[in-house]
Amino acid sequence: MAEKSKTVRAKGDADHLHDVGKTDTIHHESTRKAARPKKMADLNLTSMLDVCFQLLIFFILTASFAVGEGILPAELPTGQGKASDTEAPEQPIKLFLRSLGGDDVSIQIEGSPTPPRDFRELFSVLQGMQNSPSNPTAPYNADDPVIIKPDGTVKWVHVVNTFNAAIRAKYTNVNFATPNK
């Protein structure tokens, strides 16, 4: 009786129930037939899933490593490259950076009596020096060279900040000088 009910469940159709009741041979045959598709479905995916999870965790951990970093295109300081090919400029703007110990820095614009206190001020001073339709009396053009002259002990962040202030003020020819020792 137990065997009979098993067959019925496996096959699951009412027609077969009659056949099972008649003879044993048919009953055995039908069991085998019913068992075959079940075995096919038994493909073991566990190890594949393990590998997939390993890959997934790896990619989650390695993704988005340097998010938030960008680039500032720049010309290199004096050398045999194209950067130094510019013919002697009439009036470069020279920006001097001096380290005041620790993280502090003093910014000085050549020929300007009042040094800017921070990079925001440097930006507005540089912007005020540039000739534009709204500011036609300013002495400098956007393509006049701006030369940044940092001391050797000035932190890189201040150098890049100065560079950034100059290109933010729409100067197109910003260069670095060798450190004055």
Partner: peptide, 15 residues
Amino acid sequence: ITAAGVARINLVAYL
């Protein structure tokens, strides 16, 4: 870098 004949570089900074 200049000695290798490169005139332009990109400075990496935060956005």
